[in-house]
Computed example of a mutant assay.
Amino acid sequence: MVSHVREEADFDAAWRRAEPVPGWLTQAQGRALWDAVGRLGPGALVVEIGSHQGRSTIILGLAARARGARVIAVDAFVDGKLFGGSPTRQRFEANIAAAGLDDVVELVVGYSTKLRPTWDRPIDLLYVDGKHDYWTYTDDLLWSRHLPADAEILVHDCYSSIGVTLGTIAKILFGSRYTYVDRAGSLARFALRRPTTKDRLRVLRELPWFARNVVIKVLLRLRLRPVARVLGHDEPYDPY
């Protein structure tokens, strides 16, 4: 009981550190990342694909420090209004430094799809939050080749992005390599093991929630927030 209370307090402190950093990770999703790292052993290596300003990286990094693990943050920091380019990288590096994680988090700048074919380091946990199109996402799943059997893969926006959800249908529902475990909002957790029929059915049961999210996104684009509220979404932002 004492250990559980301490873990709760540690996560609460980590979330207070991460929450001010701009990003789309919710507290429940941060807890899912924290718990996933907590299941690793000393010396483990976590790879995060897509770090933005470091909100999720801080959670991963603080959890990794508690376990004697390390984090590799992979991000291309593409220029443009959507991603922010070098200013976003500077904010990421400043946020990691402010959290005291320079000795835990290693930044690798580059496209995940270009880095993957030559990657040669074993990893123990994979967190995917990179580009959300079908082709990039399904390529990012191939980083799992460096994971041991039964290792975990966490995917953000899994049931709120059309490209990521299509990739999940193709590679998880109809694939034979990954098993769906659970989700926190749109952050889904998979295990690297062959799925059963029951596992595949659990993926199917999430699709109505995905359809709801797509409808909400359309309503927000059309500035129909009152209609979105009828579906239980009372925020100006997309569902995460």
Rank of each mutant, 00 (worst) to 15 (best):
S112Q: 08
K114S: 14
L115W: 13
L115D: 04
T118E: 15
T118L: 02
W119R: 01
D120N: 14
R121F: 08
P122S: 13
I123G: 04
D124S: 14
D124V: 06
L125G: 11
Y127F: 15
V128C: 01
V128W: 02
D129K: 11
K131G: 15
D133N: 15
Y134N: 05
T136H: 15
T136N: 14
Y137L: 12
D139G: 10
D139P: 01
D139L: 04
D140V: 00
L141H: 01
L142M: 06
L142T: 14
S144A: 15
S144N: 03
P148F: 06
A149D: 14
A149K: 07
A149P: 02
A151T: 11
H156P: 11
D157T: 05
Y159C: 06
Y159Q: 00
I162H: 09
G163F: 11
V164A: 07
T165Y: 09
L166V: 06
L166A: 14
L166G: 03
G167D: 08
G167T: 04
T168R: 02
T168D: 10
I169K: 02
K171V: 12
K171D: 12
I172A: 12
L173H: 04
L173V: 06
F174V: 00
F174Y: 13
G175K: 07
G175Y: 08
R177I: 06
Y180E: 05
Y180S: 10
V181E: 03
V181G: 00
D182A: 13
D182F: 02
D182H: 05
D182Q: 08
D182R: 14
R183C: 08
A184P: 00
A184R: 13
A184L: 01
G185K: 00
L187H: 10
R189F: 01
F190I: 07
F190L: 15
F190M: 11
L192M: 10
L192S: 03
L192Y: 06
L192K: 11
